[in-house]
Amino acid sequence: MKLYLKIWRQKDASTPGKIVDYTLDGVEGDMSFLEMLDILNEELVSKGEEPVEFDHDCREGICGTCSLQINGEPHGPDRLVTTCQLHMRKFNDGDTIVIEPFRATAFPVIKDLIVDRSAFDRIQQAGGYISVNTSGNTIDANSIPINKHAADEAMDAATCIGCGACVAACKNASAMLFTSAKVSQFALLPQGQVEATERVQNMVRQMDLEGFGNCTNTGACEVECPKGISLTNIARMNREYLSATLKG
């Protein structure tokens, strides 16, 4: 199929970017979206032009490195998949595809379609861990009985790959779904409850410091999340934070 691509090109963080038009022929439905961009880049390199920079790593939908706002949606029109798992059969011959970086003040563009998502790392560092000695004396996790429902919910929250689609989809560029998933995966388990009060306060404080927007419960994050992280995590974080603050 033949595609008309409108791609955001930006030399670096301090240079203004713009949309550049490309026409790409010979795209097959079985190609992934990133393979389609690989082919475009091969053409650009063969013509002596600079290739389009984009983030990618595992290409198996598990690492959270790939991003891209495709035709106005993070990770494109498909549901529960990352950009690397989006296939070109979702598009038709002659389609125009607008490809932009994830947009948020807290995710500044590094180059072309690559944004700096280290704000998520700093939120995680602020409290997304449990303080246990892992130098050989750790107790087997299975020695502590855990309710099956709680274990499942914690696992569901832990499947967040931190790709940033929630921020990209939200009209307010809010990071509540990511932060709440990271709070929830510990809040639901006995090992995480020891530091629950400080964790939620520190992670929310860091989230605010990074300049993300406020959650207005539109639910866009949940719909666009490639891992199906639920809004119930945001409610849980709201509860945890209220309880932690009232405790002082």
């Binding site: 409108k6 955001w8 949309i19 706002q69 035709n71 106005g72 949606e73 029109p77 607008v98 932009e100 947009r103 948020a104 003040t105 807290a106 563009v109 989809a169 009209k171 307010n172 560029a173 809010s174 300049g211 993300f212 927007g213 406020n214 539109t218 639910g219 866009a220 719909v223 666009e224």
Partner: peptide
């Protein structure tokens, strides 16, 4: 929180 807007933003999709 979003100082540069999208060229195309499909809010109705989600």
């Amino acid at each position: 929180a979003r100082n540069v807007g999208y060229v195309k933003y499909k809010g109705s999709a989600n």
